[in-house]
Design a protein around this nucleic acid. Structure first.
Lengths: 191, 191
DNA sequence: ATTGTTGTAGTACATCGTTCTTCTCTAGAA
DNA sequence: TTCTAGAGAAGAACGATGTACTACAACAAT
């Protein structure tokens, strides 16, 4: 039997997919080079050949995560600007809740934010500009507004992820998140 | 020479202090049991005798961090409610910027939030109640308001810490933070 | 067909968190 | 004061981790 060599890109994708799987099931602590390689059906050295070791694997996973986060955020195409922005916020939260470990990893500072991260940020700014054009968002610097709104949304999601471990706080996450969105709406309204 | 045995509490405090020092200089990655023990002038086993291994050390550091964060937040005693709340927010940010690694660790989900964390949260709620009594904060549920405001402040600080690695975003952190505070003020005003 | 490049497998090594063993010191009861 | 159980200290040792090294197999280009 002749063992065919798998194409390089295929192995790379398999490793990243395996990384996401391990991350979701075993957590950050279980994300070892050996575990990911085994899950992908590859020797541990594959992580060094196709990615740049563990750091490269992390960077690839985080980059992939930002791509998916951006896609989830811009998914809404509702014509009403208010519900479009609110849906974007809710989709953002849904992504974080569905990929808690990945989301935390993305903002853990473990690997420097790169291309995909700034792309996601740019998509957010585009959303803000859309809201400004519709007249429901105040006419400040869009980039600064993006950081302000993103801060609140990201903070709400982060705290919800942290509190989900025990029942530290008895407040309902969804209610708080909607309250944050309400506050943003009031605080960023024109005038 | 007779070697006196150091009191237990003293060794514990020395270990925690050493942990903070290592955390500040070497980062989370450098925070190893051996490094902390050496820095404290103790055998590695001391971390297991006086704390509960590395997890216990982390929990102690995080708990200490929450205590200091609470102290920094309630430090302002200005009579004017508006400046008191704003100063609290700025002191919160200052603490995070001065202890970036510790702050990230506190919210990394590595160790479950405990007593000190909910105490800090309670202090924030007290601050909100103060603002409500002064009539500058809307009359919603104080606990929910706390989570909402905390979300925004925490998010702004988190993003600033992440972006500080390279010069990903060219926006000034202080300006964005003040803009967040402005938005909170507008979004949480009565009426 | 030959050759140089690239991925593969397996091993090997330093370091991590943690446990075990042994010995010494301390604290409380007789 | 003396004796004795218990807690702490030191160091070696173990499993697991990230990573480097070595030799061999598979492809691409000449």
């Amino acid at each position: 039997m002749v063992t065919r060599r798998t194409p390089a890109a295929e192995v790379r994708d398999a490793l990243i997919a395996a990384g996401h799987r391990v991350l979701a099931t075993q957590g950050v602590k279980g994300l070892t080079v050996r575990a990911v390689a085994t899950e992908a059906g590859v020797a541990p050295m594959g992580v060094y050949n196709h990615l740049d070791g563990k750091d490269g694997l992390l960077a690839a996973l985080v980059g992939d995560g930002f791509d998916r986060l951006r896609a989830a955020t811009v998914a809404s195409t509702d014509s009403d600007p208010a519900v479009r922005l609110r849906t974007a916020g809710r989709n953002y939260r849904t992504f974080a809740l569905e990929n808690p470990t990945l989301y935390r990893l993305m903002f853990s500072g473990a690997c420097p934010v790169e291309e995909a991260g700034v792309a996601a940020l740019g998509a957010l700014t585009e959303l803000i500009r859309f809201g400004q054009a519709a007249g429901i968002v105040r006419d400040d610097d869009p980039v600064e507004l993006t950081m302000v709104i993103w801060s609140s949304v990201h903070g709400a999601v982060s705290l919800e992820l942290d509190a989900s471990a025990p029942d530290t706080v008895t407040v309902d996450g969804g209610r708080v998140f909607d309250a944050v969105l309400d506050m943003i709406e009031r605080g960023c309204a024109p005038g």
